[in-house]
Design a protein around this nucleic acid. Structure first.
Length: 837
RNA sequence: GGACACUUAGUUCAGCGGGAGAACGCUUCCUUCACACGGAAGAGGUCACAGGUUCGAUCCCUGUAGUGUCCACCA
């Protein structure tokens, strides 16, 4: 027997372990068609947040739904080593432990990092369990495990041999805090307040000077020339002459170069050129074969090329330099500006463009392949579709990908340098005479290995059964903010390596924001811990809230009230189940239902039920969980609880045994269907209620998804039932607006223009507390006319369905003066479309 | 500078060529035996603005304004 109140924590207890131990999460039933997903591997850096909860719940719904549909579902779990983020956290931890991280060896550090990993992996496992995720743990992977390392090495070597990976000296974004190179998309451009500083660059052997502006005066130590446009009339007197100017930072004479690159009329028209610290200047430097002095140390302090400023932090140096130049009279002015400044995605420090030797992936050929693939049969379907544009736009404008990182935590680059000759060997395995070589000390960008995730986790490069069976995967679920980082990389890596798309569908969702619509962040302290929400409202309520409160691809606001409201809905289902089960006697035999033995109300309800199954299924197939759940919600509240369930009491209290048993059968059938339809969203309460059904399997997880039974798609009773509900509502409204008690007894005469069943009067009397009589001729009645419409289409289909008269035989009424009146019910036929979609 | 999204009830959001909806909040009534985490009946919206297409537009098109996000090397 169910408790009166739905108590989530009692319901949740023990179920996850039971499912898991029974092996319900394990894939591999070869008698079924496969359906596969890989989880977006969370970083092993911390706790899972609401975004993870949302992301994984969507996948869990899909997994459970597909399982019910008879698929062999593989949902593969795993975690990401998250190079920079994890290394930073582990380093911090070591500092806190009092360990000197400046002297620690690579091996020692990695030992600590692996300890960290196993600790955080545990946390994540616990959270997955709390969320109720049907993950196949027998296939769990880690982006840094041995199998994946093999895949990474293979891909690296293949790309290198194809000429798609190269080592080169180029301007990259340098993170001076982590002291590593970053890829372009790991740099976030923020509009920061800054200054444009104007300086005098004196012309050698002249009193004249050029006015040159910069936002980064400290880079002047790396200036190798000043550029003007050869057509700029402002500088006509310098054209074609061999002129040198004095760099006010260090007094060195540098050439004045004329190049079209400089835009006439922009700024002062004269541009300082620092090839090692600016991507544009780098191009000019290359063009003219200029020197490219690097002026920063790895931590972005000034190096030995900066004279007395050596050792200063770059920003300190800026201030000091400004003062010194001003003292010499060569500082003209400064203007406040707002400009885009690159920050590290990980630690928000200002990144420094810097010339550096790194490994790159040549992107053009890979991008072209990915773009072309979207035109063919094997394309990746984006849901919602508009995100395909986001993807294509990025692929169309992509630059080469810097993949080397100056870190320890990651896949080490399989390149070996000969100690004597300097020869570079790139190979899966170390050279046989390894003692003569040194392996590259860098590791790969984390996203390089996660880009292989959909096939590396299935055993690639080996031709495994899993790979054969589950790849390409069916579906991938992720938020829009990592389309560039991950989705697109999986697509081009997969196409290049396996010549197949990595997944058929990619379902994109938004971000969770706080109640005020702000991003949740540590610095704002507005994050919500899913575990807290679960402790307060239960995991099913959280899951239901997360997956039913936004449109695909849109952001969502977290709201305690909405989680509460979800819990209330579950309580509603709980109590409707309690009622249904309470009216089913021990050993009850279900009646065989067919249209001939059903009442108008029964037919109406079953029709609604079938339409609901259809609507839910259609939307589940579209990954529109909000729409799907709304259809079920409306059925549960309106059709089932408010109408059928209330009215069932009339039959069940009557003496028609057969009719009662049919009613019981329909109640059970509806309840069972509701449980099965809600189950993918809220598996815990569904399992609990399911176990209380008179007949059931070992677990709801073994059930099949409800199917539309066409014989019950019958709307022939809809007019009668709609009329009945309308009349009841109208009478109740009449009582309230006339300040009558709800149970006031009215005498009502009605004249009906459609044929109704015997039950009609029975229900009307019972639910209006009235004594209704049918009259054929309304002309003898007098009183006020009320008009009531429901639905509408065209005036042509207007049908007069009935009218009723009130009589004032009242008891216990507040106002005894009740007018005699007619209530005329007018019906337009509703458009069929509205009923069935 | 490009691109995308958003603007609908007091609030948060669905919907989308023909009926304007949900949740929460609000009003009135009801503790009748599934549920007060409830029930019944309501109030509340020129669906941002302006044009256009259409028999008909909240929905399609164009433009305007505002909001948000992403992308972009301009000194």
């Amino acid at each position: 027997m169910l408790e009166k109140r739905y108590s989530p924590h009692d319901v949740e207890k023990g179920k996850y372990e039971a499912w898991k131990n029974k092996g319900y999460f394990t894939s591999g039933d070869k008698s079924k068609n496969p359906f596969s997903m890989v989880i977006p591997p969370p970083n092993v850096t911390g706790k899972l947040h609401l975004g993870h909860a949302w992301n994984t719940t969507i996948q869990d719904i899909i997994a459970r739904y597909k399982k019910m549909q008879g698929y062999d579902v593989l949902w593969l779990p795993g975690m990401d080593h998250a190079g920079i983020a994890t290394q930073a956290k582990v380093m911090q931890k070591l500092v806190n432990m009092g360990i000197d991280v400046t002297t620690i060896s690579r091996e020692e550090f990695l030992k600590y990092a692996w300890e960290w990993k196993s600790e955080y992996a545990n946390n994540i496992h616990e959270q997955w369990a709390k969320m109720g995720l049907a993950l196949d743990y027998t296939r769990e992977r880690f982006t840094l495990d041995e199998g994946l390392n093999l895949a990474v090495r293979k891909v690296f070597v293949d790309l290198y041999n194809k000429g798609l990976i190269y080592q080169g000296e180029r301007i990259i974004s340098w993170d001076p805090v982590q002291q590593t190179a970053l890829s372009n998309i790991e740099v976030i451009h923020q509009d920061d307040e800054g200054y444009m500083y104007y300086f005098k660059y004196h012309i050698v052997d002249s009193d004249d000077y050029l006015e040159v502006a910069t936002t980064r005066p400290e880079t002047m130590f790396g200036d190798v020339c000043v550029c003007i446009n050869p057509k700029d009339e402002k500088y006509a007197k310098y054209h074609g002459k061999d002129i040198k100017v004095i760099n006010p930072a260090n007094g060195e004479a540098i050439p004045l170069i004329e190049d079209d690159y400089v835009e006439i009329g922009f700024g002062t028209g004269a541009m300082k050129c620092t090839p090692a610290h600016d991507p544009n200047d780098f191009v000019i430097g290359k063009k003219y074969g200029l020197e490219m002095p690097i002026i920063f140390n790895k931590d972005a302090s000034m190096n030995e090329k900066c004279g007395k400023y050596q050792g200063m932090d770059r920003f300190e140096c800026r201030e000091a330099l400004l003062k010194d130049i001003a003292a010499k009279g060569d500082f003209i002015k400064q203007e406040k500006i707002i400009h885009a400044v690159g920050h590290s995605q990980r630690n928000n420090c200002v990144v420094e463009p810097m010339l550096s030797k790194q490994w790159f992936v040549k992107m053009k050929p890979l991008a072209e392949e990915a773009i072309k693939n979207q035109e063919g049969e094997d394309k990746v379907t984006f849901v919602p579709q508009r995100f395909e544009n986001t993807f294509l736009q990025w692929m169309n404008n992509i630059e080469d990908w810097c993949i080397s990182r100056q870190l320890w935590w990651g896949h080490r680059i399989p390149a070996y340098y000969h100690k004597v000759t300097g020869e570079v060997v790139v190979s899966m395995d170390p050279p046989e005479d390894i003692e003569n070589y040194e392996q590259d000390t860098d590791v790969l960008d984390t996203w390089f290995s996660s880009g292989l995730w959909p096939f590396s986790t299935l055993g690639w490069p080996d031709k495994t059964d899993d790979l054969e069976r589950y790849f390409p995967t069916s579906c991938l679920v992720t938020a829009y903010d990592i389309i560039f980082f991950w989705v697109s990389r999986m697509i081009f890596q997969s196409l290049n390596v396996t010549h197949r798309r990595p997944f058929k569908d990619v379902v994109i969702h938004g971000l969770v924001r706080d109640e005020l619509g702000r991003k949740m962040s540590k610095s704002l302290g507005n994050g919500v811990d899913p575990i807290d929400v679960i402790n307060e409202y239960g995991v099913d309520a959280l899951r239901y809230f997360l997956t039913t409160n936004s449109t695909p691809g849109q952001d969502m606001r977290y709201s305690d009230e909405k989680v509460q409201s979800s819990a209330n809905y579950l309580n509603k289902i709980w109590n409707s189940a309690r009622y249904v089960l309470s009216v089913i006697p021990e050993g009850f035999k279900e009646e065989k239902l067919d249209l001939s033995n059903l009442s108008a109300l029964d037919k109406w309800l079953l029709n609604r039920l079938m339409i609901t199954i259809n609507n839910v299924t259609v939307n589940m197939e579209k990954y529109d969980f909000n729409a799907a759940s709304n259809h079920l919600y409306n059925f549960v509240y309106d059709d089932f609880c408010s109408q059928y369930l209330e009215m069932s009491k009339v039959k069940l209290n009557g003496d028609d045994e057969k009719a009662s048993n049919i009613t019981r059968t329909i109640l059970l059938k509806s309840l069972r269907t509701i449980i099965l339809l809600i189950y993918p969203y809220t598996p815990f309460i569904a399992e609990e209620l399911y176990q209380n059904l008179p007949s059931h399997l070992e677990s709801v997880m073994l059930e099949s998804y409800p199917q539309v039974e066409k014989e019950f798609l019958d709307d022939s009773s809809d007019d009668e039932i709609d009329l009945l509900f309308s009349m009841i509502k109208e009478v109740r409204n009449y009582k309230i607006t006339n300040q009558l008690s709800p149970s006031a007894k009215l005498g009502i005469s009605i004249s009906l223009k459609i044929k109704v069943s015997d039950d009609f009067l029975l229900y009307l009397n019972r639910f209006t507390f009235s004594n209704v009589q049918v009259v054929n001729d309304t002309s003898s009645l007098n009183g006020d006319m009320f008009s009531y419409n429901y639905g509408s289409l065209t005036p042509k289909s207007l049908t007069c369905l009935g009218s009723m008269e009130w009589t004032s035989s009242l008891k216990e009424v507040k106002s005894l003066e009740v007018k005699r009146c007619f209530l005329t019910l007018i019906s337009y036929q509703r458009p069929l479309k509205k009923r069935s979609n």
